[in-house]
Design a protein around this nucleic acid. Structure first.
Length: 593
RNA sequence: GGUUCCGUAGCUCAGUUGGAUAGAGCAACAGCCUUCUAAGCUGUGGGCCGCGCGUUCGAAUCGCGCCGGAAUCACCA
């Protein structure tokens, strides 16, 4: 039971006793008391004045007195206007801290079968900062949902077919001279991406030529040699042409090898990988079935559409007039395949907010096709990462490349470490490990601390900070605590498993305990809201509070044994909380830094 | 133009089931290392919470209308 529900219950009973009336527990607003006031929890008595028929102050005082007299946990209270500020006893809080040693600490409640899709790259270009955000959110959410007891399956859906991939392939055929990632000594995704850009460059040239000959923009775009060739290539691909398929497999594998390296360094993993090329045919079948059931319509030009006008949307094409599939066709197939394969209670798609409309349509189409479970699909629509000059555009070269950014983080972490001399005396292997941990910590925290739903800004000139509200700050706090605990061990001071309830504690220590006791609430909130930023904000607050404590009070030199034991225990639990929180964000914490 | 989302300190972000005096970090300035890691701690300045009207005892938070920005409205993915 949480402290809040405990208080709600007692408050209800107090009202019943005092005013002989029952109330709806939803009327009770409990919140943590603000820092400027004395108290731990605050209850607003305004809603109950009609029942008490007294002033706010009188009502709050009466209830406060009742609670204080009837609950040993409550020590004192203060009334300011309609606010009843309740203070719990120190021993209550120490007891809360002691509970962290108990096994029941990790009791989990949810047990849904959740499938989460994230990453979902195209195989025609390397990963950039936007993909990093996607991957980090997906990974973190998976961890958070697991932490609340769910069974989670992490799935990557690779967009491995379509005209955009043919563009890279065609460019390679024409101008590649048989180059491979090995010969060029670059990552495969980079090489393929270069050819994609090259195609676009040459394509634009040809458009310009046609425009000069007096064609309209639309004509020019559709009549260049390149676009005709690439469409022919796509047609061959769909027809299973051996040569095209072979090149397709080769180039896609180059890309996968490149992605693999980036995923590995970021610590991103999947339980299952799906490929669009393997699901679009199932999607097609479903569309035909829908046509037979008369829930879809066939237009005069033979294209098949869903009429969504009743839901306030337009008609949506599901199969082209030539019978080939569009993007949403495979998503229909994929969803159905997943539902059948994983018996998912819930399917979460971590996909950018630019696809909000797509998911609205997808759900409605599945509904039309008779799949009741369409309501178990949720689109975690995350915001774009923008640059000071606006959106990243791969064709204009304004993308922040994932690998480059990661390397930059490592370099910065290294130069700061060298400058501070913090890692002197460690082996090169250890140094490298810590530098990578800190560099990644900075990057991951920078991204995850922002509400996923919101667009965020990355300024390459300012880059990512290592001081203040940052990953390294939190990692540093962990390393600091570990350092104290090592020193304690050296002088044979053991961290106790529990501490005495009557130990005298100060306000800073109490604040830390309150944060520690709040951990579970935060995790379940993050799980329901699908929001890792809540964990990030939590762990930052905890680290900040601990640093103040660390600065203001001595641990090892405290002469009172009970206090010293308490502080050692508090430090140890804080380190554990920091580590656990950061793990939920996919961030490792070092023992020293 | 329709739909959806966003607008909080110079900058990046918290805070929203309506509650007390709106918080952090960065940047600026001023302090704190003979004492457990200064990637730290303390302090100063900085705000018509986009604008207006409404609902309410009470609005950054809810409603309506403006203004500004983004995404989307493809037989692209």
């Amino acid at each position: 039971m949480t402290i809040e529900s405990f208080l709600t219950d007692k408050f209800c009973k107090a009202i019943e006793k005092l005013y002989l009336q029952t109330i709806d527990i939803n009327q009770i607003q409990i919140q943590k008391t603000k820092k400027d006031f004395t108290g731990d929890y605050t209850i607003n008595v305004f809603p109950f004045l009609k029942i008490s028929k007294k002033t706010p102050e009188q009502t709050a005082s009466e209830i406060g007195n009742f609670l204080k007299n009837n609950l040993e946990e409550i020590n004192s209270f203060e009334v300011i206007k309609g606010f009843l500020n309740l203070s719990f006893s120190d021993s209550f809080w120490i007891n809360e801290l002691n509970k962290t040693s108990e096994k029941t600490e990790n009791t989990l409640t949810d047990s849904k079968n959740i499938l989460i899709e994230y990453s979902s790259p195209n195989t025609n270009k390397p990963l950039h900062l936007g993909h990093i955000r996607n991957n980090l959110i997906g990974h973190s959410l998976s961890e958070i949902l697991k932490a609340t007891g769910n069974h989670v399956t992490k799935v990557n859906l690779i967009n491995d077919r379509g005209i955009h991939i043919c563009k890279s392939m065609l460019a390679w055929q024409k101008w590649g001279n048989g180059i491979t990632p090995g010969k060029a000594n670059i990552k495969g995704d980079k090489l393929v991406g270069d050819f994609y850009v090259l195609f676009d460059k040459e394509y634009k040239k040809q458009i310009a030529e046609l425009l000069a000959k007096g064609k309209t923009q639309e004509q020019a775009e559709n009549e260049t040699v390149l676009i005709l060739e690439v469409r022919e290539m796509l047609r061959k691909w769909e027809a299973g042409d051996a040569e095209v398929r072979k090149l397709w497999i080769t180039m896609n594998n180059w890309v996968y090898n490149g992605f693999e390296k980036t995923y590995k360094i970021l610590g991103i993993t999947f339980d299952k990988t799906h490929y669009e090329s393997q699901t679009y045919e199932l999607g097609k079948k479903e569309v035909y079935k829908g046509l037979e059931k008369n829930v879809l319509i066939k237009k005069d030009d033979n294209s098949i559409c869903a009429d969504l006008t009743d839901d306030g949307l337009d008609e949506k094409v599901l199969l082209r007039s030539d019978g080939t599939s569009v993007y949403i066709t495979q998503d229909i197939g994929t969803a159905i395949m997943r539902k059948n394969e994983f018996y998912a209670d819930k399917m979460i798609y971590v996909v950018g907010n630019e696809q909000n409309y797509h998911f609205q349509v997808l759900k409605l189409v599945l509904k039309k096709l008779g799949y009741d479970w369409h309501k178990n699909i949720s689109h975690l629509s995350y915001g774009m990462v923008e640059l000071p000059q606006g959106k990243m555009k791969s064709r204009e070269g304004t993308v922040v490349d994932a690998d480059d950014l990661i390397d930059e983080m490592f370099a910065t972490a290294k130069s700061i470490s060298d400058e501070l001399g913090k890692l002197d005396g460690l082996s090169e292997v250890e140094k490298t490990e810590i530098v990578k941990m800190v560099g990644l910590g900075a990057l991951k925290y920078f991204i995850l601390k922002v509400d996923p739903k919101k667009n965020m800004l990355y300024n390459p000139v300012e880059s990512i900070d290592f001081n203040g509200n940052t990953g390294p700050f939190i990692q540093y706090t962990h390393a600091r605590i570990k350092s104290v605990l090592r020193k304690a061990n050296e002088i044979s001071l053991n961290v106790p498993e529990k501490v005495l309830e009557n130990t005298e504690i100060n306000e800073t220590e109490k604040s830390i305990i309150k944060l520690i006791a709040d951990f579970k609430n935060i995790i379940s909130e993050a799980a329901t809201e699908l929001n890792p930023a809540l964990i990030a904000n939590y762990v930052y607050t905890l680290a900040k509070e601990y640093n103040q404590f660390y600065h203001d009070f001595s641990i090892l030199k405290e002469e009172n044994t009970d206090k010293r034991n308490f502080r050692l225990f508090l430090s140890s639990v804080t380190a554990k909380r920091i580590k656990d929180s950061m793990r939920l964000l996919g961030i490792d914490v070092p023992e020293r830094m």
